[in-house]
């Protein structure tokens, strides 16, 4: 119950930040990626603000034995730079550039332009399902 409430709080803050920072507008996101054209640096401020706050949070996390609600930290521990990581990030980046949407803004935009956002989100879930199918196949 507490986990669900904290998750809702985190998601709501996240969605509000995306909307306030202009990230739910693909025009702004593509404007940021358009460094050779009419560059819009807004996304750099969004990233900067988020990374500074999180850098402080990581320092705090290093000093507490366990999180406030759950009994232990569950953090990624992989360190290997694989072709899968780089290839996946490249495919994601191409999709991001094509429509100016990544997963968070796509989902948040369901209340801003429902039909368009729904097409993006459903296609994204279909893409995730494709990977899930391949991973389930015994090798």
């Amino acid at each position: 119950m507490r986990t669900a409430l904290v998750s809702l709080l985190s998601g709501t803050l996240f969605g509000a930040g995306l909307a306030l920072g202009g990230m739910t507008n693909p025009l702004r996101v593509r404007g940021f990626l358009d460094i050779f054209g009419d560059w819009d640096p807004t996304l750099a401020f969004v990233m900067g603000g988020a990374v500074i706050v999180m850098a402080i949070a990581w320092r705090i996390a290093g000093r507490i034995a366990r999180p406030l609600v759950e009994s232990e930290f569950h953090l990624p521990s992989k360190a290997d730079l694989t072709p899968r990581l780089i290839g996946g990030a490249a495919l994601f980046g191409i999709g991001w550039g094509v429509a100016g949407l990544c997963p968070g803004p796509g989902i948040a935009a369901l209340v801003i332009e429902p039909a368009s956002a729904a097409i993006f989100v459903l296609a994204m879930l279909a893409g995730m399902a494709v990977i899930r199918l391949f991973e389930r196949r015994p090798s």
Partner: peptide
């Protein structure tokens, strides 16, 4: 300001739920 909110959201996830 939007970025700080996103950072706070991620900080809540990290520090409360790990």
């Amino acid at each position: 300001v939007g970025g700080v909110l996103i950072g706070l959201a991620a900080a809540v996830m990290l520090l409360a739920l790990g």
